[in-house]
Structures are given as C-alpha cells and as structure tokens.
Design a protein around this nucleic acid. Structure first.
Lengths: 132, 132
DNA sequence: TCTATACCCAAGTAAAACAGTTGGAAATGA
DNA sequence: TCATTTCCAACTGTTTTACTTGGGTATAGA
C-alpha cells in the first residue's frame, strides 16, 4: 500500500517546475530528470499526462521544455496525483458499489472510504506553493 | 494504491469473529471462509498473523477454531491492519529517513506523511464494534 | 535549408509483488 | 484410534510496476 513512482515522480517534477515558475521559462526534460534524479524516458510519460491534464504546457525545439500553466498556489497535490495515476481510493467498491457483490452486507467499506476521504482531503488542501 | 486482500480479508474475518464474540465459541476456519467468501488456505495464513499479534486465540481439534481475545470495542482497525500487512505508510522515507538519499531537499515528504497520518488516525479511531 | 535541440508516442520487458495453492505435520476430543 | 481442526513451509500463476527501446515530429538558429 504505497504511492507508486508515478505519483512520487510526478509531484517532484511539479515541485521542480514550481520553483522556476516566476521566470516563465521552459525547463527541459533532461534538466528536470537530472535535478530530481528521475529516469528521463519514464518521466517523459508522466509529463505527457500532466500536459493532457492541462497542468503544464510545452514547447518544442531549442530552448523548449515544460512549464506550469497556473501558479503554484493554485495547483493542488490531488490534481497532480489524479493526472499521473489512478484515483485515490483504497478499495474498488468505494468508487463503484457494483464492483462488490456483497457490498450491502460489508461493513468494512465504511473504514476504507473514510480513510480514502481523509487522504483526498489532505491532498486537495495542499498546494504546490506550500511545498516550496 | 489499494489496500491488499490481506488487509481486506483480515478485517472481514475479524468482523465475522466480532459478530459472535458474546458466545465465546470457537469459529472454524471453514465457517469464516465460507461466510466471508475468502479462500480457505489463504485466510488461514492471515489468521495465523492475527494470532501472533494476540488479537485472536485458537483451539485445535473438534469444535476448535478461532475467537477474539479482547472485546470488539477494544480492537482498532489499525491494529488489525498492522497485524496482517505492512505498516500504513505511503512512501519508504516517511518511516525511515535514511531510506531516501535526498530526504532533506524533498519537500514532497510533507504531504505523504500527512496523508498517511490521517489514514492511521481513522484506522486507529475505528473499532470493530463500530463496524457491526 | 540544414541541423541540433527538444518534445511526442507506442510497444516491449525484466523484476517484484500479489493472491492464492499444495501437501503434509501436529494437536485435540470423542 | 480416528475424525476433526489448526499449524506451517514451499511452490506457482498472474498482474502490476518501473522502466527501456526505437522510432517520429516540431522549432530555432546558423
């Protein structure tokens, strides 16, 4: 029950971008991967997802790279996690009651969904700015 | 990032035992596995862990089985999860700062540990009795 | 227009974790 | 002594994870 590298790398990459938000310059994949010690090609796929989620924008060619769209104070950790990885649920039946045949007589769900809700709350209330 | 079957099955087995706590009778592996729809041999290993954690006690032979040691109101979900599975941390470096070479300059840890703490709190504050 | 720089993207892969199974030993009560 | 029940270690198929490979495409500067 651990956060995967997708989530961890994704957040670290976003923190890296947030650091240089003010300059509005594009940061290359290579520089992010080197600064944060993340495998280049793997990180690329994560950045692609962050772009599709419209958290970052890109530019190709010389001097190209990645940069944040919104300011760090306006980007929550939850958004980042949802962009790069699966939703923050602890069991299948929490997000989809039909996934569990014995959903009705399964009192355990109460704990799992409470726990997930708290995790989500913390992630939603924490912004990139707070992590700088 | 899901709770494994160890945690889910373990909790459900404990709920099952809690249901019959008052009678003080031993419930057989088979009956628990059938009532909760959990593979028998797999469940056996989980019950062994719960016994080692001194949450349940056992008796062999005819009319043998498993039963709770303490009353349901006195058993937290956290205890159960710790007994059958790994500690409730989201990243390695939260429980062990030396596991991460860049621990000091990694602001992301703050979120991970906050999230884990909230999960733990919910699990600690929820007892078996509340799930009945 | 050529070329170096950088992002874009699909498919493949080794290793680890997960979820269970197999097969038997040991204790207990009738 | 025998049916019942827990105890326990080793094995195994499947899925997920964490990457890697090998291309393609846009952009800027010489």
């Amino acid at each position: 029950m651990k956060i995967t590298t997708k989530g961890r790398y994704g957040l670290r990459a976003m923190v890296e971008l947030a650091r240089n938000y003010k300059e509005r310059e594009y940061q290359s994949l290579r520089s992010i991967s080197e600064n944060q010690n993340i495998p280049e090609n793997y990180l690329e796929r994560l950045l692609a997802k962050l772009r599709k989620a419209e958290l970052i924008e890109t530019h190709r060619g010389t001097q190209g790279g990645y940069r944040l769209i919104r300011e760090p104070a306006d980007v929550s950790v939850l958004e980042i996690l949802l962009a790069v990885d699966e939703p923050l649920y602890l069991v299948e039946c929490t997000k989809n009651a039909t996934a569990c045949p014995q959903y009705d007589r399964c009192p355990s769900n109460v704990v799992w969904s409470k726990m997930a809700k708290e995790m989500q709350r913390v992630a939603r209330e924490t912004t990139l700015k707070e992590l700088l």
